[in-house]
């Protein structure tokens, strides 16, 4: 089923075509922001919001059926919990590795390189997953409200 050929759902062909081109770079940019969180402005939250907004754009342009094919709401809330658990387990691993909660137990590496700052990039990935999935889940929840109100 090609979403471009179903004009009754979502917005016009123009919006759909542009969205199709724009969504992959947005997601890529979000991932870049997450991975460079320890070097440049941004980080888990900002990157996660960007990734989440890419999915929101998909939903707006193609209607929620298509977006649900990419990422279901239940999957989004599972991913949210997984992200939080990654972050928490990193904090707890600090106790196991060095005896302090939130201890940065990985080697720090050379400053200003992509592989540096110990576990901060990993924590950023966890936060990114959580925030992206969370923002999308919030958006979907609010949409579902509107549909049920109309009935």
């Amino acid at each position: 089923m090609n979403p471009l050929k179903e004009p009754q759902r979502g917005m016009t062909v123009i919006v759909k075509t542009i969205a199709k081109f724009v969504v992959p770079p947005i997601i890529l940019f979000g991932i870049y922001i997450v991975l460079h969180g320890h070097l440049t402005p941004g980080g888990g939250f900002a990157g996660g919001v960007i990734v989440g907004s890419a999915f929101i754009l998909l939903t707006l342009a193609f209607g929620k059926e298509v977006a649900f094919q990419k990422l279901k709401r239940s999957t989004a809330s599972v991913l949210e919990s997984v992200g939080a658990l990654i972050f928490l387990s990193l904090a707890l691993l600090g106790i196991a590795a060095g005896g302090w909660f939130f201890l940065n137990f990985l080697p720090k590496g050379h400053p200003l390189r992509i592989l540096s700052a110990g576990f901060i990039p990993l924590a950023n990935i966890g936060i990114g997953i959580k925030v992206g999935a969370g923002i999308f889940a919030v958006f979907l929840t609010l949409i579902v409200f509107r549909v049920s109100a109309k009935k």
Partner: peptide, 20 residues
């Protein structure tokens, strides 16, 4: 800002429910 996003999302959801 993160906290206020969470509060805002929740309060808007409550508003929609109240409207229902």
């Amino acid at each position: 800002i993160v906290i206020s996003i969470a509060t805002l999302a929740f309060i808007v959801a409550i508003c929609i429910r109240i409207y229902q």
